[in-house]
Amino acid sequence: MRRRSLILAAVPAGLVTLAGCGDDSSDSSGKVDSSASPSASAPSAAPAPKIVDGPLPAITAGTKFGEKPTVAKGSGAPSDQLAVKTVIAGGGRTVAEGDYIQAQYLGQIWDTGKVLDNSYDRGAPLLTQLAQGSTMEGWRYALTGKKAGSRVQFAVPPTWGFGKEGNAEAGVKGTDTLVFVFDVQDTFNARSSAEGKKVPQDDAAVPKVGTNTDGKAPSVEIPKADPPKKLVSGYVIEGDGEAVAADDTVLVQYKGVVWDTGKEFDSTYQRSALTSFSLQQVVKGWAQGLTGKKTGSRVVIVIPPDLGYGDRPPAGSGIEKDSTMVFTVDLLAKM
């Protein structure tokens, strides 16, 4: 797994009904492994901060969107509220509370200028949900309402950061104000869909999946035939993002149905909530079916029993023993 942020709280994972793989060695917790990264502060009991203009230290180099910034030390005393500045205004979708954002970022300590963490050097953007308890409160307040394509600089006092306890592992004292620069690349919510080119669905032996991109669940038409014995995975809509690796954590919309009956047994669309999970913690068919696929895509996956649940489906899932499962998956982003 890639090194996770020292500042990011663990992203809650969904796919609870998919978390138990078809063998005894699988992890059935349904949660992303967060052992490499301590959580951000607990949900703040403090009232919402006032958003003020400053003070904020100067960005002295790396001033373009997407460039790693160099930020000066803070001068004088920082505000006890949340100082926020849109350095570069983007024209993309507006970030709402509860959204997942994809962003490059850098964080450092006001007084010393010590850089705590940055995603630019890792070569992989951050993916986090701006929801209470999912990430730092200062991030949630500072980034909600901003647009994708924006560079946002802000200073987070302890009240909306790590609190009076600080974070020893990250090197943050309980009195430290933290300074962040975020390049917000994209934002995702329950209405997000794949974006790309439609791929012909010519194989009559493979379920046909709807190509709507309005955030609603696509249709799934099961062929009137026996299911395939081997895994099937193919594009319905092919995006132009990065290919997903076997150890990546991904953000998805999905719907699952049983081949024999066409009955839906699980769906993020019904819950109106996206799901983030590690490909190392789902059934083998999911991991194999999504590895190598590009973000931004819609993928149809047909999972035979030996790569799904076999004769041990989750209790109450509505999946019978030795069922073949069919999924439509919108692969929105990866961590």
Rank of each mutant, 00 (worst) to 15 (best):
Q153P: 05
L126E: 07
Y309C: 09
Y105W: 08
E195D: 07
F277R: 11
V52P: 07
K216E: 03
V236N: 02
P305Y: 10
S317V: 02
K255P: 00
P207Q: 01
M335D: 12
T144L: 08
Q185H: 04
P12Y: 11
A9D: 13
F162P: 03
A131S: 11
D322A: 14
P38I: 10
A243P: 09
P12S: 10
I51T: 12
D248C: 14
K173Q: 07
K198Y: 00
Q81S: 05
V184A: 15
R122I: 04
P223M: 06
T211E: 03
I51K: 13
T135I: 13
Q102F: 01
L18Q: 08
K224S: 12
F65Y: 10
V172C: 08
P218Y: 02
V172F: 06
A205T: 09
E242G: 13
A243K: 15
R4Y: 09
K197W: 00
Q253W: 00
V179C: 09
F180N: 07
L8E: 05
D330L: 15
V181K: 05
T328H: 02
R3M: 08
G241C: 13
K114Y: 01
A287L: 00
I59M: 12
W286F: 04
A190I: 08
Q104I: 00
P314I: 14
S41H: 11
G54T: 03
F327Q: 01
G292H: 01
D226I: 06
S193Y: 01
D33Y: 02
Q153T: 11
D99Y: 13
P49G: 12
F162K: 03
G256M: 05
Y309P: 00
